[in-house]
Amino acid sequence: MSECEHRSPSSWDPCADARLHIVTGKGGTGKTTAAAALATALASGGGRTLLVEVEGRQGVTALLERSPLPHEERPMLSAPGGGTVSVLAADPESALMEYLELFYGMRRAGQALTRLGAVDFATTVAPGVRDVLLTGKATEAVRRREGHRGRMSSTPPGSPFAYDAVVMDAPPTGRIGRFLDVNSEVAGLARVGPVHDHAERAAEVIRSERTRVHVVTLLEEMPAQETADGLDEIAGLGLHPGAVLINMVRPQLLGSADVEAAHAGTLDRASLVAGLAAAGLPEPGDLAAGLQGELHTHAVRTELEERIRGELASLGRPVLELPRLARCSGEQAVQRLAGALTEQGVRR
């Protein structure tokens, strides 16, 4: 890729220490794909990572072209060099049940609450509670140490972490501030008690230096604008912005002089016709007219993309690019994108 010279090899470094990577971005930018690629890149070389999705869409299994998951962690992808990516489709209802059981041993109460509609209540009507339950799942996995599950009090601080890194496929930029600002959300609901404590613990992880919020974008105006706004909002909340991931980057096929010529309409039609004839293609004249239209479109688009790329670079965050993959999908695509991230210096 010709943009390589823009990047310094150390650009990812501030993010390398992070244990929680939160991936947001405008709707439709491919957050799930980018998050899966990041989790795979971070697992490569014998690492263990967890990819958590919180939107209840089973986006990861759809991406990997597999059937939906139960709401528990399971290894789903292997990374180059022996790493493993586990996936969790977090669900507020099962998180609440698990939580009640864990802290109160109250499975029966949980069932009674379900029948009453209280679970519905806690997970849909009181969105603060819902968000705390979901961020709580991710932050619990960040803190978890080997051989122990859940109860923080019984975790020996010396044993290694269960996961080297946790990647969260988070809500879109429009809702990310509210989602991550668990503390103030819950402040209005629970001022004391276990939900409050739970929120405190989650917030501590989310506010930590070792949590980074990455924003996925496209080389288009609206997603780029939301990226700038999103990074501002994240910094404003006292959280730590991470990288800008530009998704679906198209290959550069034309040199900049040709792009200009194509845009200005001064590209030499005769030489294009001659080239097509030399390649043995029929109707080179009419074909050239069609291709010239495509070149023009491409040139207009390329110039716009260059402008947006410059705007994104000026945000002062590490910029990573993920190529548009026309010929592969599913797990193969995730692996290819993870490889692209590793090449750009993504590591843990």
Partner: peptide
């Protein structure tokens, strides 16, 4: 000797695939 035609064809291939 035909760099622009070559690029135009690769671009078209990409677009046709899309």
């Amino acid at each position: 000797g035909h760099p622009v035609a070559e690029a135009a064809l690769r671009l078209h291939a990409e677009r046709a695939r899309t």
